[in-house]
Nucleic acid binder design. Structure first.
Ligand SMILES: [Mn+2]
Ligand SMILES: [Mn+2]
Ligand SMILES: [Zn+2]
Ligand SMILES: [Zn+2]
Lengths: 157, 157
DNA sequence: ATTGTTAATGGATGTCATTTTCATTTACTC
DNA sequence: GAGTAAATGAAAATGACATCCATTAACAAT
């Protein structure tokens, strides 16, 4: 299965002067199809299945390129390794933020209240840009706490 | 100079069943007086000056305790090491969020719009708690972009 | 299609923040 | 003051990620 936004990614990368390599295409496809928040090694393993010439080093380098061009987001959910997620979601999924369980590490995507959040962020960005002469490129919102499972285990203990 | 919130910290730690040790006190004092966002090694160096028996391992362990009890916040600003900040600010400083420059790594504290942000966060938290059965303990908001210096350098280039 | 240029690559190796291990010490209880 | 379990420091291990460098592949110009 070929992912639909591949041409978008290719076009954007070319626009930045980057070459389209087999490894980069494979990585982009894995990210486009991913349902979870993948680590560099996760991506390496998935790409390796269909393109065993891939090297972990190139995965890191490609991810850096994709993040720097804004095609991919990089997150720290506190488990000691970076996690990656395609920016323009598969099948036009909406922008979302995250709930992070500090008990088990589970990460929940949410898009509830996202419009209010984005409206406030926009307003805040405008104010902060002016006051601090700071150009805002993007934002990060995460909530930390305990998921249903960990909440229960806690009470049980 | 002894910091004012020291007794608060001591009381809270004891409440969690932790012992008050010389190292922990020294670390708490450094954090209480800090004006920047310190790394574990930064803290180690500062503590070492007045308490050379301290070990870096204990700094890490104490920070873990302080973070888990909510006395200290742990941040990832993207420079490859964790940064720490006392939760109840020196001299009752207000809760704040961060602007992170991806050019030079500078981190700016801001409290502008914080009330609107916190109001929305509270509302969002209520909705998310119910929908996902998730107990929210705290939140993270950061803006990424270019500070005034890096903006200029970029144009110059 | 062939060639030339240079970005991109993979594997080996290095780095460095953080964790683990373990014998010793210290904070707190009685 | 003695008992005990938590806390500690130093050394060693871990692991994510970066760097190095000789080789390869993408792409543009023939
Ligand atoms: Mn997500
Ligand atoms: Mn701060
Ligand atoms: Zn959980
Ligand atoms: Zn900057």
């Amino acid at each position: 299965m070929k992912s639909r936004q591949e041409p978008l990614l290719r076009g954007k990368l070319k626009g930045y002067g980057y070459r389209i390599t087999q490894g980069r295409e494979a990585i982009m496809n894995v990210l486009a199809d991913a349902k979870e928040h993948l680590s560099a090694e996760d991506i390496y393993i998935k790409v390796y299945a269909s393109y065993p010439a891939i090297g972990l080093t190139s995965v890191y380098r490609t991810l850096e390129v994709l993040v720097s061009t804004g095609l991919v987001y990089k997150f720290d959910f506190g488990d000691g390794r970076a996690r990656y997620e395609i920016a323009e979601g598969r099948r036009g999924e909406a922008h979302h933020h995250h709930l992070v369980c500090t008990g088990c590490g589970r990460v929940i995507d949410y898009a509830d209240f996202i419009n209010e959040e984005l409206a406030l962020l926009k307003k805040t960005e405008a104010g902060l840009s002016k006051k601090y002469n700071f150009t805002i490129i993007n934002h990060l919102i995460q909530f930390y706490g305990f998921c249903s499972k960990c909440k229960t285990n806690k009470n049980a203990k």
